[in-house]
Amino acid sequence: MSPREQRNLREKERRTRMKHLFIILSSHVSPTHRLPVPQLIDQATSYMIQLKEKVNYLREKKMSLLGEMGNYSERSSSLLPKLSIYSRDSTIEMNLIMDLNMKRVMLHELVSVFEEEGAQVINANLQNLNDRMIIYTIVGQAIICRIGIDPSRIEERVRDLIF
């Protein structure tokens, strides 16, 4: 092969690889339809900015919850359990802080409450803190976005489990 043919072949492979990478990016950013490359890059950029803001928000929320945990460990455990449910658009997040000496609640029981109320569980987490407290965090998304999720119903059912 001549150097010119080798260069043309490498360029063709590069274009094919870039096309494949743009297809993968498109499937993450806009899975329903294909976009032209400039629009795809614009949407990917805005999507990354949104994700970064969400990560910062969640970090701040985690720090505030951990700060509350420090305050709770200094006080009596009569303030526990603490249940907080946040709902935004078609997503719902539940944070539950319990003392280990209280009634045991299994993570799968909490997940089943979410699923029975029409939410698909995206993330479920269980964390022991100071060998005295346990933190349950569950994030769910409505299976059918038009119908949504009723946070008050989930809160009522979780409270029934806790007490």
Results as ranks from 00 to 15, higher is better:
102 M>E: 13
121 V>M: 03
118 G>S: 09
15 R>G: 06
40 L>Q: 07
62 K>A: 10
73 S>W: 14
61 K>D: 06
76 S>D: 15
134 I>W: 08
96 L>G: 10
79 L>S: 12
133 M>F: 15
97 I>F: 13
152 S>M: 08
66 L>A: 10
138 I>V: 15
155 E>M: 13
79 L>G: 10
76 S>W: 09
12 K>R: 07
98 M>W: 01
2 S>K: 01
126 L>K: 07
63 M>Q: 11
126 L>A: 06
109 E>A: 07
20 H>Y: 05
56 N>H: 02
122 I>A: 02
18 M>I: 10
70 G>D: 03
127 Q>K: 09
4 R>F: 02
59 R>C: 09
106 M>R: 14
68 E>Q: 05
115 E>M: 10
93 E>L: 12
118 G>F: 03
95 N>W: 00
57 Y>V: 07
33 H>Y: 07
109 E>I: 01
96 L>W: 14
59 R>T: 10
138 I>F: 08
69 M>N: 00
13 E>H: 03
15 R>Q: 07
107 L>C: 07
71 N>K: 15
3 P>H: 09
121 V>K: 04
54 K>N: 02
162 I>Y: 04
103 K>S: 09
143 I>Q: 01
138 I>T: 06
42 D>W: 07
61 K>Q: 07
57 Y>K: 09
27 S>M: 04
111 V>A: 00
56 N>P: 04
124 A>G: 08
23 I>K: 05
135 I>K: 12
104 R>P: 02
144 I>P: 05
76 S>K: 11
12 K>Q: 13
118 G>W: 00
9 L>K: 14
135 I>T: 08
123 N>S: 12
92 I>W: 03
90 S>A: 01
111 V>W: 05
17 R>Q: 13
31 P>Y: 03
2 S>H: 07
113 V>S: 05
35 L>H: 01
127 Q>E: 14
72 Y>T: 01
110 L>H: 01
97 I>H: 14
77 S>T: 11
